[in-house]
């Protein structure tokens, strides 16, 4: 099976994540869409590591996982704080700052 299929799959996953980011309303789901995008990137990296025959891509995928974990810590802290304040995690409700 050609490794290029994995590239197509990861491109689709990335697009699904980006579309979900723009369309979903709950901040936690929006954030999960970002995680989906990061995981799509990991699939791309691992596939290219296979195609290029170098290990770099697999190593980079580990870095991406670590960074994603750190991002979850910060992100959930912020989302929980705003949920406690407003009793809502909808991104439509954070609308005090505009124009």
């Amino acid at each position: 099976m050609s490794p290029a299929y994995y590239l197509y799959l990861s491109a689709i996953l990335f697009t699904v994540g980006a579309a979900g980011f723009l369309l979903r309303r709950n901040a936690v789901v929006v954030f999960m869409c970002v995680e989906l995008m990061l995981n799509a990137v990991n699939l791309t990296l691992v596939t290219f590591a296979r195609i290029n025959g170098t290990l770099d891509g697999q190593i980079i995928a580990f870095f991406v996982m670590v960074v994603a974990a750190a991002e979850v810590v910060v992100g959930l802290a912020i989302i929980v704080t705003i949920f406690r304040t407003r009793q809502s995690a909808s991104v439509d409700d954070v609308n005090l700052l505009k124009y």
Binding site: F14, F31, V34, M37, V94, L96
Partner: peptide, 18 residues
């Protein structure tokens, strides 16, 4: 306002770094 700024910056920042 401050917490709202944090949420907006975080979500958009994470999106752009992806």
């Amino acid at each position: 306002l401050s917490q709202e700024a944090a949420v907006k910056y975080f979500l958009l920042g994470a999106f752009s770094s992806a």
